[in-house]
């Protein structure tokens, strides 16, 4: 098997005094859609932040595309950041800019393209994320929840990243919107060859779109594999999570397909 896009070894992270991850190991293959699951407070978002270079681990290594992230030079770090897109849970759109400017911002920062080309690329990203062209001139405060998610996705795609981190992409969307968003993620992954890491609680997302699920608990990866394999896991926490009524229903509807 080829080298993994992300390789995490013996990761230890702390928030204040609380140890979130203790000796966590995880490999994520390139082109794979990996979901990080786990009960609330198990450190899914913290893991995402560590992988996205937003949080310095206390110990252990994270390698992105074979580069250890703990010993990066500034220019290497900037290059690496250009290869990843992060979509935050609440969008984190810049409130002082229009949606189009939000998407154009990383392009302006990382490339020397003229305005017209930047805006053309930005508009393409908005369309890819499924936003109507009218939304481009709106400010984030004028967007609905679903539109905010799409705009945030468009911005995370701005630099054609190889790695896409999504934090709870379908949380807060209506079921139809959530399904559409799931499809959109798979579609973009197939089209652009992305490696996608998503943190999610959504049972449907876990069953339908994730190639791999890494289940986090007690500071490490308790189990990993496709949803079906995890239901058979011997770990009580994993069985409990996948044995819940909502998860069962999502699994049942997946079985029918």
């Amino acid at each position: 098997m080829a080298d993994p896009a992300i390789r995490i070894r013996n990761l230890v992270t702390r928030l204040g005094d609380r140890t979130v991850h203790n000796e966590l190991n995880l490999d994520i293959q390139a082109g794979c859609l990996t979901a990080i699951a786990g009960s609330s407070g198990s450190g899914k978002t913290v893991l995402l932040r560590a992988m996205a270079l937003l949080l310095q681990p206390v110990a252990g290594t994270i390698e992105l595309f074979g580069q250890a992230t703990t010993t990066l030079s500034r220019s290497a770090e900037r290059g690496l950041r250009g290869r990843m897109g992060v979509m935050f849970q609440r969008g984190a759109l810049f409130t002082g800019m229009t949606v189009l400017d939000n998407v154009a911002f990383p392009l302006r920062e990382h490339t020397a393209l003229p305005r017209s080309a930047v805006y053309e690329i930005a508009r393409l990203k908005l369309r890819l994320a499924g936003l109507a062209p009218e939304a481009a001139t709106l400010y984030p405060s004028e967007l609905s929840g679903g539109m905010t998610k799409r705009a945030a996705l468009a911005r995370s795609l701005a630099l054609d990243p190889d790695l896409l981190f999504l934090d709870e992409p379908t949380a807060g969307l209506d079921p139809v919107g959530a399904t559409a968003f799931d499809k959109l993620i798979v579609h973009l992954r197939n089209l652009l060859g992305l490696t996608v890491i998503l943190v999610t609680h959504d049972p449907v997302s876990l069953w339908e779109i994730a190639d791999e699920i890494a289940f986090i608990g007690a500071g490490r990866v308790l189990a990993s594999g496709p949803a079906q394999a995890l239901t058979q896991s011997l770990e009580p926490a994993v069985r409990c999570y996948f044995g819940g009524a909502r998860m069962q229903r999502a699994g049942a509807s997946w079985d029918q397909k």
Partner: peptide, 17 residues
């Protein structure tokens, strides 16, 4: 071809404020 088609499918003009 798929990527190019995606880009070419629409060339709308964004309405201005």
């Amino acid at each position: 071809h798929a990527v190019l088609k995606l880009v070419a499918s629409e060339m709308e003009v964004t309405p201005r404020r």
